[in-house]
Design a protein around this nucleic acid. Sequence first.
DNA 1: CCAACGTTTCCTGGTT
DNA 2: AAACCAGGAAACGTTG
Length: 229
Amino acid sequence: TMYITVILFLCSSVIRLYTSHVTEISCIKGCLNFDPSSGIPPLWTSLPPEHWTRHHVCDWLQYCCDSYKLDAAYISFSHFNVLGVQLCSMTKEDFTEAAGICGQHLYSILQDIRTNGEAEGDTEFFECLMWILIILGMQSSHLWEFLRDLLLSSEDTSGILDWEDQEQGIFRVVKSEALAQMWGKRKHNDRMNYEKLSRALRHYYKTGILERVDRRLVYKFGKNSYGWH
DNA sequence: CCAACGTTTCCTGGTT
DNA sequence: AAACCAGGAAACGTTG
């Protein structure tokens, strides 16, 4: 239970963080600079260049050669048998001496990483996490999960949806149309409204996902829902 | 291509 | 009167 709760919390936070920036999964795929099917991204991507070991520097060179189609024959690898700190202190001239025209490319790539370093490391981390969640099929796409995650998130939901009694799983829809808009956004459907959302919720009564509460805009999680305690 | 699933859309009629 | 609620019926998109 603890494990599931932690995973659910992580999922909802990461997904919410992401859906606010990215509208489509394909977008996320496009942002990634590594092939998810071949495993995790190289370690150096999550570290600032200043902290790279000789090995990281080597990996980075290899990556640059592959990704930017640089000819390794022009690169004097002995010049790059250095620590990250030393690599960062190298001037553009040093790079040119070590790898000619490729050196200038490498120099600008490195400077780019250094300037965007922190943020890139962060987004990279979340992209990676996001991918893992998608691969594990943990992106909740069902309406009741969407509501549950919204209720569970510490994020300010601007009083759109609130617990009435979390122990019993009773919650209240505060701003019905705003909620419908959020759901519509998630499903890329701008024609969504509370009339239709509530119809979908009423379908849940027969499957035990929700139980009826005879109060306007109040719903209750049923025995076939989980993760809201 | 099929079928099941989870809605989405539309609707009629009733309640607060 | 506006906003909700109850479900039937059928269309729809995704997934297995």
